[in-house]
Amino acid sequence: MDLRAPKAVAVALATALVLRAHESRASQDDAKEPVRIGADVAAGCPDASFFYQQVRARTRHVRLARDEEAARELRLVVKADGAMFRGRLDVHPTDGEVSSREVAGRKCNEVMSALAFVAALGIDPNASLTSTEPPDESDEEAPENPPSVVEEPKLPPPPSEAAPARRTSPPIVRPEPRAWNAFVGVDATTLIGILPVPAWGGRLWFDARARQKSSLFAPAFRASLGGAATVEHAIGPGMARFQLVTMRLDACPVRWTRTWWSAEPCAFLEGGVLFGQGIRSPSPQANQTAYLALGPLARLSFLPSTRVRIGLEGGFVFPLLRANVSFSERVAYQVPVWGGSIGIGVGLKFM
């Protein structure tokens, strides 16, 4: 009797079952967010594996990223501070601003567990506050080789069927390929002290900012086109109104970012044309002159989401060209040495 046929059928059935299980597992993995974890913890604290298991115990919608897969980065730092432990979690999403959260406590594992809940909540809004059950590791990465088929007792399993050693530490965090984000937006502005009365206007801007890889250095650059105008007002022996049209370049070398806001110091250089029109005078005249100014400014941004920025800024303006306004060959007004500007606006991320 030939016993090879039944054995071949058993092997074929086992292979089909393994392929089906891999397909099911692949579909489950697609529904989970991949993460990479980096941990720098004080001596005596649990390792990064403990932190990941605490995240997994609160949500099932997470898994470790594969080698070249784009993934959310969770960077954990826990330091001993006397009798306390202070932890910080920086979350680097694949597309968006870095967010941070800090927690302090008397026990290191409790600090790590609290930050694990923060990480889980960022992935799954329905994450559990406490670890109610041990994490199920059965849906983690499975060995690529199928399980061994039952053989005769005297035959050892082939070397290719031996299960690979389980990875005990998370993979090394790799930088994301996208280094810059871009925004477009519009501001409402007020220019104070440069013209005889405040000038009201707006600016249309384009903003390119580096993805924040550290807690401070993250340069940003902005180009904008704007204008401002005054109402009719008395000047010298008559009335006048002014209009200012400028192109401005801003540079901001550093940025402080928290969960829902960021702040950055900047410097700007702008140039354009100042238009003046005399009215209600014996000999009204219109003229224009070049305008050039620079100065520092501070920008505070509120981040309701990763794609929206609401900005508030203010700064000093130092004109480099000080135009004169004359009536009947007599100087009625000269642009002062310095002034100020304030603005508020909104921007949307498009890449």
Rank of each mutant, 00 (worst) to 15 (best):
A114T: 08
A12Q: 06
E161L: 15
D30I: 15
E137N: 13
M112E: 07
L312F: 15
G311Q: 15
S128P: 00
V78A: 06
H61P: 00
A120S: 03
I37H: 02
G122F: 13
D250E: 13
P143S: 12
G226E: 07
G272C: 08
A286N: 08
A114L: 12
F242L: 11
Q288F: 12
P6Y: 00
F327A: 14
W260Y: 10
E141S: 15
L312M: 14
A199H: 02
S24K: 12
A263M: 09
P219S: 07
L303W: 05
A10K: 00
L191F: 03
V78S: 05
K7S: 10
I342A: 15
Y52D: 14
F302N: 02
A188M: 07
R258D: 13
T189S: 14
E73D: 12
A104T: 15
D40K: 06
P156E: 11
R63M: 06
I279W: 01
Q54D: 08
R222F: 04
T15S: 12
P156N: 02
Q53T: 07
E264P: 00
P34N: 04
F50H: 08
G314C: 05
T59V: 08
I172C: 03
A39Y: 02
G105A: 15
A12C: 06
G238P: 00
I194R: 00
R106C: 01
S138G: 01
A228L: 05
A251L: 10
E97V: 10
E176R: 10
L269T: 03
P171T: 03
P93R: 06
W261V: 03
A223F: 11
A290S: 14
I342E: 15
G87A: 06
E69V: 02
G227N: 03
G295N: 03
R280T: 04
A114S: 09
L191W: 08
G315P: 00
K79D: 14
E69Q: 09
Y333A: 04
Q334L: 04
A165E: 09
R101K: 13
S328M: 10
T306L: 13
A21R: 08
K107W: 08
T15N: 06
A114Y: 01
I342W: 04
E133P: 00
V77H: 05
Q285R: 08
P93S: 08
S169F: 13
A70E: 11
F221Q: 05
V78C: 02
I342S: 09
R322Y: 01
L121T: 03
Y291C: 07
D124E: 07
A116I: 00
R75S: 04
K154N: 09
I37T: 02
P265D: 08
V118F: 12
V184S: 13
N109K: 07
N287S: 11
N145A: 11
